[in-house]
Amino acid sequence: MAPVRLLVIGGYLSYRALFEWLRPGLFFSVMLVTPVLQMLFFAQLGRYAEVADPSYFVIGNAVVGCTVACVYGPILAMAEERATGTLPALLASPANRIIVFVGRLIPFALNGLVVSGYTLLVGSLVLDADIAAGEVAPLALTLLVAAAACSGLGLCLGAVGLLVRDVPFLANLVALLMLLVSGANVALDRLPVGLRVLGEALPLSRGIEAARRIADGEPLSAVSGLLLGEIVVGLVYFVASVGVFAWAETTARTRATLELA
């Protein structure tokens, strides 16, 4: 029972306590307005350049919209953990690190799902993106998988944030990279090879492709390989985050440098 309590309640409490964007004003502007405006901007750009129809950008930006919660969230939460002085308590606790991290991943993944779903809904209403009723459930599952994988990356970056000083810069850099190389706005086959490889190494590229194929009418079974790939990528980042955190923890104990980074 204790691990479940740690997973659910611990994750919920850390999310409520450390994620400062949950204030209504900030949540509204950062989580609800900005992703929609981003989608409208790229849809307008795509329409002017005659690259693709608006639904291409609606789906791409809906999936990538989860980065505001899933990438920034864990990074800011970890930075807040350090700023508020609760990091030593976390390090000193005997709690299972993997359960602690999974517990912290779940709220951000659900938050990302909400942002993506909302962006998709607004996009389909404003830009007339055609999404059939039967596609809603597979799309929701795809968005959840993408958001969970993205949260894995966010946790990994949050752990890296323990070692570097300028965490917001890191978050901005990764969010911009995902906007460029995830295939949300520029098709992967149009990118240079290096950027394409980077896009495939980051979460969301498979999720975006899967979501587009589902919106085109393909069944969930046809994109199961893509979703499995997205899960694997997310797991790799999750394992890496646990590893980085363990390394930072060891370094902190031996050199007492964790809170000085």
Binding site: R23, G25, Q38
Partner: peptide, 27 residues
């Protein structure tokens, strides 16, 4: 205190109405 977040929100609309990448005349 949170003005930064609100000004970040204005970034894309300002890009659009100022014609950064797409002529504003298309709006």
């Amino acid at each position: 205190r949170q003005a930064g977040m609100f000004t970040n929100m204005l970034e894309y609309p300002v890009w659009m109405v100022c014609g950064l990448l797409v002529p504003a005349s298309t709006l």
